[in-house]
Design a protein around this nucleic acid. Sequence first.
DNA 1: TCTTGTTACTATGATTTTCATAGCAAGATA
DNA 2: TATCTTGCTATGAAAATCATAGTAACAAGA
Lengths: 165, 165
Amino acid sequence: MKDNAADQTLCPVARSEALVGDHWTVLVLRELFMGSHHFEELQAQTEATPQMVATRLKKLEADGLVERRVYNKRPLRHQYHLTEKGEAFYPVLLALRAWGETWVKSPKEGRAVNFTHRSCGNPAGLGPVCDSCGKPLRRADLIAKQAAKYQREREARWETFKASR
Amino acid sequence: MKDNAADQTLCPVARSEALVGDHWTVLVLRELFMGSHHFEELQAQTEATPQMVATRLKKLEADGLVERRVYNKRPLRHQYHLTEKGEAFYPVLLALRAWGETWVKSPKEGRAVNFTHRSCGNPAGLGPVCDSCGKPLRRADLIAKQAAKYQREREARWETFKASR
DNA sequence: TCTTGTTACTATGATTTTCATAGCAAGATA
DNA sequence: TATCTTGCTATGAAAATCATAGTAACAAGA
């Protein structure tokens, strides 16, 4: 996809794709939503090479989805955080999650994350509206609980990463 | 992303990405949802090379999102249609559209497509629930109306494509 | 029958991207 | 002084993508 072509079309899907239509970009965004803010966490959990993460973060920053925050002056260290535009991408990931859980994974694998709907206190399901109360799901209203198996998977990735350097 | 890694993770986002995490794949899916079913329509509207379309369609078929239907025996000709699994991907595109219209395009460009909610007869907005009646939006309940400007854009792409062969 | 048109791709070689691996910089810690 | 930590950058090989051209199988008109 040439940037050129994407700039000229009126299609919002093509326009979005020009910013986020990439494996690593989507996985980096997932990690930011999961609460990883450090370069090495993003690298470990996406299993990307450092260049892949670095180029994606630079593009995401240039496109206004991510901002760098200094958390340590000497040596200079940054954290990566979602901007409002980045946060607004959440429904796309939620929809992708719902499709993946339903159509890509086998049911017996179990969900990676389960959400409780804060405003009604019950399981939220896969969305876009709450399984229990029927209201639209907003990120702020969701309490995420990782499955034990998924938590172990993530811990294992972190250990493997640390062991390799 | 190695298929290997994607097969092993419990994360539904990563698992989905292994199937549809690609510029051309998403654009091909968009076209199928727009009602294009012929190879050349897909090629013209995505502005991809024929190999890109061919490889993506083969992968989508192998992954069960798309099926080929014979519409002409001699010479043998196929149409491409979404399966149930492919149709189920719609909410992801709808969410991507909403994000693109809100955060990527400038408001004065105008929407590419506007939806009317069949069950209430009013504009549906950007979803995931109807702007007018608040019910969740299902694809079957949406009446799409392309903006004149977008329609011209698509016609122009088709003309350009035909002229180039 | 000969030529041109239609649809759906496949082939080819140059360019670009990605990958695995290694390395570096700027301090902190021991 | 040496090693550790964090966050990247550099390098060359491998793979994907691109533009361009061509092929296959038939239809339809001159």
